[in-house]
């Protein structure tokens, strides 16, 4: 009968177990010789944990740890060396600059003395000027403070037309009239400027009417004199009519080749705008004799 491996293994595993001698146990027990050891002296390792792993692996880990430590030391030394090199370089630069300064020091000192003397004279003048200016500013500040106090007192007082005297009311009306007149002059200036701009695109000739230069005028409101309260400005140039204009265009299709020719006129204030773009205030009202009509054209002073 051939035996395979499995059968041989079965035979081996079922091998007879020799019986121990009866006296052997007693002999072994009698020979027990124990020496008590402290538990802390050599603890048993019941499982292979981290300490066992370390114990087995330390021969491999120790060189690696030493290498890492060496690398760390080398890196720190490299950093220190670089810092020292940089410090050295800075010191060398400072030394060079100091040597340079020492070389040029006598010349610089002489120059410096001259500069200092000049500077001291100039500074003294400047100081004197500043002192004067400070005095002036101090007076100004005192004046402003006084005005502020007066303003506060006035602002606390009730302001009503009824409370004003006749003189004050007259002064107020005069000031208002002056402001309106200035506004009117401003309008005429803008109209003159718009006419000149229009002329740039039309062979230096002025527009035939106000509506033609609507693109050059900002708003129809400037065609109404602020003093003429009963005339309304057009909302847009699309709605513009002659009723929406206070001023007269006296030089339609004119040009700036006749600078003294009257371009526009305010019938209320008597302001006139000339073809050179300037505006003369209240000429038509106060000095009408200066306006000269020639060849159906109106000129200021002469043509």
């Amino acid at each position: 009968m051939n035996l395979n491996d499995q059968e041989i293994e079965n035979v081996l595993r079922s091998a007879p177990k020799p019986k121990a001698l009866t006296a052997l146990r007693q002999q072994l027990v009698a020979q027990v010789k124990l020496t008590a050891t402290k538990k802390e002296a050599q603890p048993m390792i019941h499982s292979v944990g981290l300490s066992g792993w370390l114990r087995r692996s330390w021969p491999a880990l120790a060189p690696a740890a030493v290498s890492l430590a060496c690398a760390a030391v080398m890196v720190s030394q490299e950093v220190q060396v670089r810092a020292l090199q940089q410090s050295n370089r800075r010191l060398a630069e400072q030394r060079a600059s100091l040597q340079n300064a020492a070389r040029i020091a006598p010349e610089a000192a002489a120059q410096l003395a001259v500069d200092v003397s000049e500077a001291s004279a100039a500074e003294e003048k400047e100081i004197a000027r500043l002192k004067v200016r400070a005095g002036q500013l101090g007076g100004e500040v005192a004046r402003l403070e006084k005005m502020q106090t007066e303003n506060e007192v006035l602002s606390k007082q009730p302001v009503t037309p009824a409370g004003l005297s006749a003189e004050e009311l007259a002064a107020l009306a005069k000031a208002r009239e002056k402001a309106l007149s200035i506004n009117c002059i401003n309008n005429l200036k803008q109209i003159g400027l718009a006419a000149r701009v229009w002329g740039l695109d039309h062979k230096d000739t002025y527009p035939p009417d106000f509506l033609s230069m609507s693109n050059e005028l900002n708003t129809p409101k400037i065609l109404v004199c602020p003093a003429e309260t009963n005339r309304l400005a057009a909302a847009t140039f699309a709605k513009f009519t002659d009723e929406n204009c206070s001023y007269e265009l006296l030089a339609p299709s004119g040009s700036d080749t006749e600078p003294q020719r009257v371009l526009t006129r305010c019938p209320i204030h008597g302001h006139i705008g000339l073809c050179d773009g300037s505006v003369q205030g209240e000429v038509a009202k106060k000095h009408p004799e200066q306006l000269i009509m020639h060849d159906k054209k109106l000129y200021l002073g002469g043509y």
Binding site: L28, Q31, V32, K33, L34, T35, T37, A41, Q42, M44, I45, H46, V48, G52
Partner: peptide, 14 residues
């Protein structure tokens, strides 16, 4: 077993 008793202190349990 004599050697077992002698070796008890060195048994580490591995």
């Amino acid at each position: 077993f004599c050697r077992v008793w002698e070796s008890l202190p060195t048994f580490a349990g591995r």
